[in-house]
Design a protein around this nucleic acid. Sequence first.
DNA 1: AATGCTATATGTATAATTCATATATTTGAA
DNA 2: TTCAAATATATGAATTATACATATAGCATT
Lengths: 118, 118
Amino acid sequence: MRNKNTSCTGNNLPRLVRPAIMGALLIRPMHGYEISKTLEDMGIFGKEGADLSGIYRALNQLQKEGKLVGKLEKSSTAPAKKTYSLTQSGKDCLCCWKSTLNSYKSQIDSVLNLLNKK
Amino acid sequence: MRNKNTSCTGNNLPRLVRPAIMGALLIRPMHGYEISKTLEDMGIFGKEGADLSGIYRALNQLQKEGKLVGKLEKSSTAPAKKTYSLTQSGKDCLCCWKSTLNSYKSQIDSVLNLLNKK
DNA sequence: AATGCTATATGTATAATTCATATATTTGAA
DNA sequence: TTCAAATATATGAATTATACATATAGCATT
């Protein structure tokens, strides 16, 4: 059954995956699975964490846009990983995201004000 | 040119149109164009306000879902309007939206905390 | 041997958004 | 008085994001 987010029971906030990923990479360079676990531990996307496939897709997109670079690390003892780090362009983008996220918050506050009327 | 919202320059917050519309209807029953102007005046979706076509689409969906009822008002002196009001189901939904929006805010705060690291 | 975790990726369906466009009436300005 | 702008609703089409399923594969534990 799809469709859990169409109504007022909305789970995750769309468009938050990208800045969340990039924020995680501010801590240190990480690979996708590690990013997913980090965000899950922080509880950003609820108890179940963000969808892994969405994270991998976003990572590939962000790389295509030049905001991240991924380095493939092969290993004989573990599955291959791609460790991503922020580029300068990615860091600039994060700065922009800061004001975007603050503007999201004030938009939400405006709606909440409406909902608390009366 | 499309594509203004894909990156960190994100404009409108998705999934905010529906609770915003329903919140406006808490003030009083209104028709679509009036809702659009009300939200625009409140600056919820930036200076340019929300896209009108999106509002009309959401109104029709919300009506289909039983959260609103629309009453067509024909007039000899003005274009026909559809005045919408919240149903009980719509009011229940709004209550749910309140906690959803607060959870959105805390998700955003978590990401902002990441971005402010160092 | 079987399960579960680590690790990445794609296919597909759906939902939401954006922009363009169509239609029709009314009001105000040049 | 003609033309533009505002009021009012709606649909078509493209894009983006999300969600869920699924595929693959190595490693660790029981």
